[in-house]
Design a protein around this nucleic acid. Structure first.
Lengths: 232, 232
DNA sequence: CACGGGGTTCGACGAACGCCGATATCGGAG
DNA sequence: CTCCGATATCGGCGTTCGTCGAACCCCGTG
């Protein structure tokens, strides 16, 4: 069923998009598929894909969209189904994939250091626990603007033994405050997209109070997500 | 945002459907909108709608689908937005609307009897609490076959002061067992779609142990859901 | 620098869409 | 019995889609 859920979501997004072509492209690149490969899978000329993506047809038929989506998922499946599984985790947890950018449960617990390396993160505060068994990557802006309070709870709560990664952080004030309010707290919080100079002055103190590790990272987002997916 | 989420979901379902026309019809009737009214909203002839629903065009353009969906939602909004809110509740809780058929939080708590009346239910066991402040209607078959264990937890847990209604029940064994396992338990469980004779023999005993009310109902499903929506 | 891979642009053309209006059926209201 | 709202069926017609293939661009690499 996860495949169907994801398919519906992609199809719905493309269908309602102001610019269906751009949305299609977004998903194709997200799945790491070239126009050529997609065209091959669909048994059409590669210019067809380009035409759609460039918006030459403003209202493609439903059939085209369906075929495109299925083809993308087919390709992913033939590669092992990594992307499908990744999105399935986020979706079945009930979140949008643009809010929760990744959500994983490792087969076994790993040292926090391993995560730091994958993210090229610098630790500022060392918490009580130094192993984690999963991580959640949250777009902090989207989360703060779009989540309801119950959803926050669902997202931040039940996060023991995990690391929460916040992307698009400017100072780190809101994520840290949220961690104070919520219970239980994660083992580690990693702020992404800022340098140590930008960090909110009270951040380390708050982390210390609740006993979780705090780190920051400023690596390229896409690359970082890519590496996180490969983790254990 | 709930409107957009719902719109995407409907659009996705139509786009990927084997029979887009039938799916469109399903949603239109679900929103209680006549072909004529939809056509009027879209400023087209009513035969257009009929043609689409009957499948005369096998691959309608994305634009058509978008306009249809938006029109349905516009109509609902002009009527107060009841359906949108209803689905929004289910969706933002992270479930599919065919698994969770309704999910409500009343503005104020109501006596259990009020719910019984709306469902034409017969109480078999009287629990410790006789008021509820919300209800969740769950398709028991879909739930058992499609939900993961975490999702179960999300659905059944955090259900204090609520009534859980299970539809499509044959004997009531699995819902009652699930209630034993989960914590906290709801104030009431109502099994729908069976008669007292069909009931699993141990059901009343289990309800008594956990102190929740148990009732059964065998009314027509659609009518019942309709009345539940109107509740307080 | 030539070659290949990824992508874009565009003319062309048959097929299918998008919409209309007329006609027809059917069940309920008056 | 008639009128009306809701839905279905269908011929018709202008528009757009769906697809191809050829030409072309950029960039990295042997």
């Amino acid at each position: 069923m996860p495949r169907e859920d994801l398919a519906r979501r992609i199809a719905g997004e493309i269908t309602l998009s102001d610019d269906p072509g751009a949305t299609l492209r977004k998903w194709r690149t997200d799945f790491d598929v070239s126009q050529t490969a997609l065209a091959e899978q669909l048994d059409v000329s590669s210019s067809v894909i380009s035409d759609y993506e460039s918006g030459r047809r403003e209202s493609p038929g439903i059939g085209v969209v369906r075929r495109m989506v299925e083809a993308l998922l087919d390709i992913d499946e033939s590669r092992g189904g990594g992307r499908i599984r990744q999105y399935a985790r986020v979706i079945s947890a009930g979140f949008e994939s643009d809010i929760v950018q990744d959500l994983r449960e490792y087969p076994t617990s790993i040292p926090l250091e391993t995560l730091y390396e994958a993210m090229d993160a610098t630790e500022l505060v060392r918490g009580d626990q130094d192993r984690i068994s999963g991580h959640t990557v949250i777009n902090s802006i989207e989360a703060i603007t779009r989540l309801s309070s119950e959803e926050f709870y669902r997202l931040y709560g039940q996060s023991t033994s995990r690391a929460l990664v916040f992307t698009g952080v400017t100072r780190g004030e809101s994520p840290l405050v949220a961690m104070r309010v919520v219970n239980p707290t994660p083992n580690a919080v990693i702020l992404h997209g800022l340098t140590e100079d930008d960090l909110w002055e009270h951040a380390p103190a708050l982390a210390t109070i609740d006993g979780f590790s705090l780190a920051i990272s400023n690596r390229d987002l896409e690359e970082m997500l890519e590496d996180l997916r490969r983790l254990p």
